[in-house]
Design a protein around this nucleic acid. Structure first.
Lengths: 190, 190, 190, 190
DNA sequence: TATGAATGAGTCTTCATTCAT
DNA sequence: TATGAATGAAGACTCATTCAT
């Protein structure tokens, strides 16, 4: 398999288990089954992995979202499915979300944020545009901006729940409902 | 000035400039004008500073929010003022927001997140409760949860704008309006 | 062009720019436009290049010296021309002189010093012998030894001038005159 | 004892034994009896030691020279004593001479050459001036420049002998005589 | 409390060398 | 011969932490 990909996969696994700070390059290469020096052929440092990891995670998120949201369902249902999907990803990968955030936050890689999230934003934006065209949400909504708001809202809501490892299914259900109502009203036709 | 406070102030400055990862204890003490060993009389590690920093930042945020939001204005205006205030803080301290997040995210100090943000959540929650009592927003709103959603939404919206240093006042205005509309609808009585 | 030669040429260039210590094999092969592994088909190590480089440099020096010194001029003039020639080479290649020295100095390749410089020593020695025969310099001069002294003297004088990149033509002229006088007297018939 | 000095002393010893290339920082600190990290409090790298070592060596040389050359001897004798002294130092420290040369040759530290050699140049120059004043050498001699020539000549002659470890006392005697004659004539009143 | 030179374990990083193609 | 991706041993270097003052 492609070495670069193996490094990214291994890094995600190791970061999840022990966090970024405590992870040594040697842990990553061990997990990837490659030599120490090989790492540096693909990445100049541990933090420079973050954009690549973020990309993978966003791709994975988008994949799950696309799978969970039915193309032909009515908009309100699709929105609920979107919320569920984001919560689902966040439950599975909450440590990664946090580390992507903190990893990208490290100044130099910040600039990649937009690029990395772009496909996800685009997908939600398209959905909103379609809903506007169908007249099922208020047409004062700017699809691009609102896509960002929706994703930001739902991810932050999910993070607040899954920040702590403790598995809180009940909590999650309540929070999801609150978000769904919040969203439904936010977009609703007045 | 109190040494502990000097350390926190210095740490905030240095973290802003070079990020958490790249900041050494020696950078902090240099900026604080104290001796290397003195640091350890107040904090056991670099990351243990994060809760203290977060506390300072939340206090500062709350202070500005309280100042900008008029007690006696009608609710929709107060909400707009809240959005403006959060954007204002974020513009000034956007790197800090990111680093608090990533700093607290580092496993051990995660638990403090709730505690640190509590007063801010409380203040917004109280405002929502009052609005419900006055019947100016839908009473299906759960004030505590929604306070978190509102803050999460607005902060993520602000971060998206101020992530990049480039000063984009126009951008900010548009984004703020979008958020205000989004929020107004989200909370509105159906 | 012959690969071996390309390696030597590239090495000279790179060594000049960044010094021996800081030059990696990879820098040399990059400059030579060949593959990493190819280097080892021609040289077992970085330092093993030094004798080859030294040989090239001495050949170049001898070539210039032979060109600048007129066969049929009287001895004092020929000596002046020799000084001029050595300074000329040194001006162009002063970093190389230094690095040959330090490169050869690295233990293993030291033994080649004599071999490499031999033709140059021989040429000067022959010139001195001829001058003795002609009775134009004192006959207490030992041609072989004195050849070494003369070359050592003039090269060290030139190095002192050209050590610093700054182009100091005036300085060089003065220094050359001093050396010429020094030499003239050193060899003169008492 | 002062740590910096201990590092320099230890480095000289270790460099002599195993050469610059083969010497690890860890060898130096072991010999100096200090911790690995302590080295970096005083020097940023192995090569940055070279100017300091050179300084020590020149000081040592000057010390020996001053000791061997009698203040009140006639000039020709003093000059012979100078030659003997330089050969003596070179015999004892020929590896160091070579490594100073190659160490200083490493571009960045080159600029210190003049500074480091200054006291030695000065001392010889003063001696020449005095000899001119006394009328025992030709007054067309420029003391400063000639000091450099003399030192360059004698050191290069000595290096040619002691470059190879093999102890060649006979060789040295002959070479010294040749140099002495060469010098005597070079400076002699015409 | 405060200092800051010293420590050295822990990592990162380099780069000469190999070898399957 | 030639290639260049991969290797991993070897060392450089960092920096949190200590402790004598």
């Amino acid at each position: 398999m492609d070495k670069r990909e193996r490094i990214i996969k291994a890094a995600i696994e190791v970061f999840r288990k022990q966090g970024i700070e405590k992870t040594k390059i040697s842990d990553i290469v061990k997990a990837a089954g490659i030599a120490q020096g090989t790492f540096y052929l693909y990445f100049p440092s541990k933090l420079s992995l973050m954009p690549a990891i973020a990309e993978v995670m966003v791709a994975k998120t988008l994949e799950i979202v696309k799978d969970r949201v039915s193309d032909d369902a009515p908009f309100p249902l699709r929105m609920e499915q979107l919320v569920d999907a984001i919560f689902e990803v966040n439950e599975e990968y909450h440590e990664i979300q946090a580390l992507i955030y903190s990893g990208l936050a490290s100044t130099e890689h910040l600039k990649n944020w937009e690029t990395v999230y772009a496909p996800f934003y685009k997908w939600v934006s398209d959905g909103l545009q379609q809903a506007i065209d169908e007249g099922v949400i208020r047409n004062s909504v700017n699809p691009d901006r609102t896509a960002r708001l929706v994703i930001g809202l739902v991810e932050s809501a999910a993070e607040q729940i899954y920040l702590y490892d403790t598995d809180k299914e009940d909590e999650a259900v309540i929070q999801k409902n609150e978000v769904k109502n919040f969203l439904k009203n936010a977009l609703a036709i007045d």
